[in-house]
Amino acid sequence: MVATAPATWQGRWAHEADTQAFAQRLALCPAVAHATLALHGDLGAGKTTFVRHLLRALGVSGRIKSPTYAVVEPHSAIDCPLMPPGEALSIWHFDFYRFSDPREWEEAGFRELFASPGLKLVEWPERAAGFLPPIDLDLYITPDPMNTDPEHDDARQVRAEARTSAGQLLLAAVQ
């Protein structure tokens, strides 16, 4: 079997409202309920901002904080329209920026979390390379170098790459 290049979408989020709109379109796709999304970008690129918008669109209420120090933050979307009535969507937001000890993978129970149903959002996936299950959608976010408006520095260039059939469904939802 010949490997094919992943399906790709490229775009620009001129303002944070564009980030929110992208997240809302993604949240309407049933495949997101059991997907693994890898978020790529430097510090301050907007990965956590995107996650906050996606979680809100999925029905997560309350404080949504970055898992930078905790490595993983669990969330539950009780009123998620993608789930049957009364059933919550489990979501895990991982940040592997400080991940350096492979033993931590087993000790923290990450294998079990990734094997369980629900949405997994992974920042800094390259730091857990070799441990992660297949990624459905890679999302690359970078500040837009062509942005000339210092009043609005939230412009981002975005590339999404579908790696699985679920990723292709997610990609179709945002196009």
Rank of each mutant, 00 (worst) to 15 (best):
D138G: 11
N147H: 07
R111F: 04
R63S: 14
P81T: 15
P143V: 14
V122C: 15
C80Y: 07
V158D: 11
I141C: 06
L132S: 08
A155P: 00
E126Y: 01
D95V: 05
D18L: 09
E106V: 13
W13P: 08
D153M: 11
A128F: 02
T19G: 09
H93A: 00
V60P: 03
V174Q: 11
I135N: 05
Y140V: 09
W92I: 02
R127S: 08
T142H: 09
A88V: 12
R163V: 11
V122G: 08
H15W: 02
W92D: 13
G46T: 12
K47A: 01
P67F: 03
T48Q: 01
F96P: 11
W9L: 13
P145H: 07
W13K: 02
S90G: 12
C80N: 02
L170Y: 13
P117H: 12
D18T: 07
G109S: 09
A38W: 01
R63Q: 15
R127H: 14
A17K: 06
M1E: 02
Q157I: 15
K120W: 00
Q168F: 00
V51G: 04
P134C: 06
W124I: 05
G44D: 01
R156K: 13
A70M: 03
R56C: 03
A45E: 03
E126D: 15
L113S: 06
F99W: 05
R156C: 02
R98C: 13
Q20L: 11
M83Q: 12
S61H: 10
Q10D: 04
L43C: 06
P84D: 10
H34Q: 15
G41C: 07
Q168I: 06
A115E: 15
A155V: 03
S90V: 07
G59L: 08
G86A: 11
T68N: 00
Q20G: 08
Q175R: 15
H34C: 14
L170W: 12
V32N: 01
F94S: 04
W13C: 15
Q24N: 04
A77I: 12
L170M: 15
E104G: 03
H40G: 00
T48F: 05
Q20D: 13
P125A: 13
C80W: 04
V32A: 01
Y69T: 03
V174L: 15
Y140N: 12
W105V: 02
T49F: 04
E106L: 14
R111D: 14
S116T: 03
D18A: 13
N147Q: 12
S165M: 00
G46N: 04
A88H: 13
S165A: 09
R98I: 12
G41Y: 09
E151C: 09
P85M: 06
R12F: 01
R111T: 13
P67R: 08
P85V: 15
A129G: 08
E161H: 00
A70V: 15
G167C: 09
A57V: 10
P150M: 08
G86P: 00
P102R: 13
W105L: 01
R159A: 13
S165N: 00
E16G: 06
M83W: 05
E126P: 10
A3C: 04
A155Q: 09
A3Q: 09
G167Y: 05
